[in-house]
């Protein structure tokens, strides 16, 4: 009897909060943190976030062609800006929810030193990076190599993943000895979890700002607004930081 009344009470509470479902497109690199955040979000607000994970470029094409997403958590800040400019995003709703960090990583525990000297010394056949034309982490990797003056010398050794997860696979299988991956992919308890890595200092590349935006289909939708607000909350920030991202 007691359980039943709690159930009824919680149902009433949900109804009074105008519980709502929001369709969210999430950049693949943010899969881990977003799964945790969506649970917290649901618990906190009663709204439900239904998540789809994928490449930002693909989401852009889908949204421009009428996909039913209401919020986009992009892997960059350009795609949300472009969506707003083209009328598919709500102006002024852009928000930087995380800043990605790049790490030079190898599955070999001895290959990478704490300063990235290995890039100058060589002794490897392939270096993996995400496609710089399409992936922000790839563009950042190019900047790092450019600033260190090793880009030309390493270019013949490049192997490109189409996105950062594929780049991580190249390195984790050992097919490429080392590569530039997202810190969020290799972090474990606040440090590089396995192999060896060099967390690249922020002054060697432009910050990888990941922006969220409310899309035209989510305009004036309480759950969409609530989700963006929740991304700025301390609870969400703690999760985001624990996955190896920085915050604005």
């Amino acid at each position: 009897m007691k359980r039943l009344s709690t159930l009824i009470l919680s149902l009433l509470a949900l109804a009074s909060a105008h519980a709502d479902e929001v369709q969210v497109a999430v950049a693949a690199n943010f899969t881990g943190p977003m799964q945790v955040i969506s649970v917290l979000f649901e618990r906190e607000t009663g709204h439900k976030a239904s998540l789809a994970f994928g490449a930002t470029g693909k989401f852009y094409a889908q949204i421009a062609n009428g996909a039913p997403f209401e919020v986009l958590l992009s892997a960059d800040d350009e795609t949300p800006a472009r969506l707003v400019k083209e009328g598919n995003g709500v102006a002024g709703s852009n928000l930087t929810y995380a800043i990605g960090k790049v790490v030079l990583w190898s599955a070999d525990p001895k290959l990478i030193d704490g300063k990235g000297e290995v890039l100058k010394k060589g002794g490897f056949k392939h270096i993996a990076l995400a496609n710089p034309k399409t992936a922000p982490y790839g563009a950042a990797a190019m900047q790092v190599m450019g600033k260190l003056g090793v880009a030309e010398q390493l270019k013949p050794l490049f192997v490109q993943g189409e996105n950062i997860s594929q780049t991580h696979q190249f390195v984790s299988t050992g097919a490429a000895e080392l590569g530039f991956v997202a810190y969020s992919q290799v972090i474990k308890n606040g440090q590089v979890g396995s192999g060896s890595g060099w967390i690249i200092p922020g002054n060697l590349y432009d910050p990888i700002r990941q922006d969220a935006v409310i899309l035209a289909k989510g305009k004036d939708k309480p759950a969409a607004v609530a989700l963006l607000k929740f991304l700025k909350s301390d609870k969400a920030k703690e999760v985001i930081r624990s996955f190896g991202y920085e915050l604005p």
């Binding site: 490449a55 094409a61 496609n131 189409e162």
Partner: peptide, 11 residues
């Protein structure tokens, strides 16, 4: 096929 994918991703 990879080249096409790249073009689409780069818009």
């Amino acid at each position: 096929s990879v080249q096409i994918y790249d073009h689409v991703e780069a818009l």
